[in-house]
Write a protein that binds this DNA or RNA. Structure first.
Lengths: 246, 246
DNA sequence: GCATATTTGTCCGTATGTATA
DNA sequence: CTATACATACGGACAAATATG
């Protein structure tokens, strides 16, 4: 566990190849941000599961950073809603309720539908959507289910990008990060994402045809379906855990 | 405070002494949080104007807190997007660009229009909108322009509340907080808010009549108008300041 | 219920690197 | 080039709350 957490961080230089591009855009990163990056990756990949307590001492000594720096990283992730802070008890990986899932999809429908409806004015944005669809189809051929899920995320990020608003992009990123906390409760992530691959292609075709309202109708339907599917699986999964907590 | 607003491009007389008076108010919550409260109030009321650098020694010695604690407060306000951190230069009161204003209104139109379109199902939400309209009309009668501005904020917060989503509420709150940084550059805030008072009433009437699309059309029109007005005034005001910065 | 150790909350001083005058 | 001011990060001290036996 200690090594798994420590992993990167100690020597950013040699792993910098993949991260260098991101870093160039964001400018230099502080230690707290790098710590947050490591923890965020561990959380989104499911290594730290929802409900897990992140003790200052353990994480701090594993990563070799001081408490102050670590707490700053905690604050960043708390602001992203990936962690929750309980007074004098520490920070925990966020556990979403069913209400959270419903609200997340409510916001997604609001944002994504509005973005796709007003599309057509931006060939640049449509191209990013097409790239995400192609990425998903390649992942499908390679039977790489994790990449399939990532591609699906990119698709919806690209859909939101059609709004042409930095703040909407940022919001969408936060929404998807939160949803990743839920995706881990799905028994079979492959089937979940697989089902929407053809749907994404259909939506893209409508966008390319300049049929914004048509694309919106399809998207709304798929989002409703995904929400239902997710709420079902999630309610089942958590009913047992919640009973075991008291 | 009033002197600082009335004061022109010169440094206000004694910001340190003014802050020292706030020291008595520092009561029982966390020191960093209390410092953040004081600074937040000073920023939103326009005492610290956008672009002002918050010098560490001045603020720290005025409030009697250590640099480390002050930094903690700065972090809190940076997370709220009221301050910006410039690398190794310090913290500044956020200065929005014209692009920011445009993007803020882009998001507002997306959110508020979608929320008002799907209204009608919530008599509870409509009631909050009505309360905000009434609040504005009372402020108008009392010729209390500050309260008029606040009521206008509440109106749009209530409009967003029609979506029935906690995350949309929070987003709207952040959007309006950012916009407050812009409102201070308006030469005549009274006239700016006054113009939309009757508009708010019109929108409310449409909502009560169950005419979501009609309310949306009105709202979109008013938001476009406000954006244009604000961008004009803002571009004028900042062109001079930006020239004076170098 | 009580006394314990552990963990977190808060705040400080300092050392080092960096940007600006 | 030097001096100043600041950001960053660290380690530690002490209080307060929680968990444990």
């Amino acid at each position: 566990m200690t090594e798994a957490v420590a992993g990167h961080l100690r020597q950013p230089p040699d792993q910098g190849a993949a991260l260098a591009a991101d870093r160039a855009l964001l400018g230099r990163t502080s230690t707290a941000e790098r710590v947050a990056d490591v923890l965020r990756a561990r959380i989104t990949e499911g290594f730290f599961r929802p409900g897990t307590r992140l003790a200052e001492d353990m994480i701090g000594s594993s990563l070799g950073v001081s408490r102050n720096t670590l707490r700053e990283a905690f604050r960043l992730l708390t602001h992203e809603r990936l962690l929750v802070h309980e007074l004098n008890r520490g920070v925990f990986v966020r556990m979403l309720t069913v209400d959270d899932v419903v609200d997340l999809y409510r916001v997604r429908k609001l944002i994504e539908c509005a973005a796709v409806r007003g599309a057509g004015s931006s060939p640049d944005g449509a191209q990013r959507v097409a790239a995400a669809v192609a990425e998903g189809e390649r992942a499908m051929e390679d039977r790489d289910w994790q990449r399939l899920g990532t591609a699906n995320m990119h698709f919806h990020q690209a859909i939101a990008g059609l709004a042409g608003s930095p703040r909407v992009d940022e919001l969408m990123q936060a929404i998807l990060a939160e949803l990743r906390l839920v995706f881990h409760v799905m028994a079979d992530p492959r089937r979940f994402h697989e089902r929407y691959l053809t749907g994404n292609r259909e939506i893209l075709d409508r966008i390319d045809a300049g049929d914004g309202p048509g694309a919106e109708r399809l998207l709304a339907g798929y989002l409703d379906e995904a929400e239902r599917q997710l709420v079902d699986a999630y309610a089942q999964r958590t009913s047992g855990e919640q009973a075991a907590r008291h």
